[in-house]
Computed example of a mutant assay.
Amino acid sequence: MRMDRERDAAGPLVRGFGPAGFKVDAPDGTMGVYPALLLTATRADGWTPPPFDALDEAALAPLLGEAIEFVLLGTGADLRRPPRALVAALEKRGIGVEAMDSRAAARAWGVLRAEERRIAAALYPLEG
């Protein structure tokens, strides 16, 4: 699926997604495709996520060095409840977790960034 929108958010934007992954447009004009993805307001990085049930704070460490309100967690092709230990660990830091399937999370990223929300995202692959 291709998502067209004007660049009205700072930082990387998800421009589309499909079986190969998430197509990301960086502010410098470069484009990348990532099967799994970590996003902040300033960067997009490929990610090798752990099995979903083993997701923990350490797996999200690259996101947690920035001042964020919550992590937008894309749980893959289907919505899944994040591990309770992860939610508790992030809440101790004052960071919320918003879980949704990865397609919805990719779409929400641009909307929330356009609102200048201080968020990060971890998107599990759509396939596999």
Rank of each mutant, 00 (worst) to 15 (best):
R2H: 12
E6G: 10
R7I: 08
A9E: 10
A9F: 03
A9D: 08
A10S: 12
L13H: 01
V14L: 12
V14Y: 02
V14F: 12
R15Y: 00
G16W: 09
F17E: 03
G21F: 04
G21H: 01
V24E: 10
D25W: 04
D25H: 06
D25G: 02
P27Q: 09
D28K: 00
T30G: 05
M31N: 13
G32V: 04
Y34T: 03
Y34F: 13
P35C: 07
P35M: 10
P35V: 09
L38G: 15
T40P: 07
A41F: 11
T42N: 04
T42M: 03
A44F: 04
D45T: 00
D45Q: 00
W47E: 01
T48K: 13
P49H: 00
P49F: 00
P50C: 06
P50L: 00
D56I: 00
E57S: 14
A58D: 04
A58C: 12
A58L: 12
A59D: 13
L60R: 14
L63W: 13
L64N: 14
L64P: 09
G65E: 15
E66K: 11
E69A: 00
E69W: 03
F70M: 04
V71R: 14
L72H: 11
G74D: 05
G74Q: 08
G74C: 06
T75M: 11
G76I: 02
A77S: 11
D78F: 00
R81V: 12
R81A: 13
P83L: 02
A89V: 12
A89K: 01
L90H: 15
E91G: 08
I95M: 06
G96E: 03
A99D: 09
A99I: 03
M100L: 13
D101K: 07
R107W: 01
R107H: 15
A108M: 02
A108D: 00
W109Q: 13
G110L: 08
G110M: 09
R113I: 11
E115V: 05
R117N: 14
R118N: 09
R118V: 07
R118Y: 08
A120C: 11
A121E: 06
A121P: 10
L123E: 02
Y124Q: 05
Y124F: 05
P125G: 14
L126F: 09
L126E: 01
G128S: 10
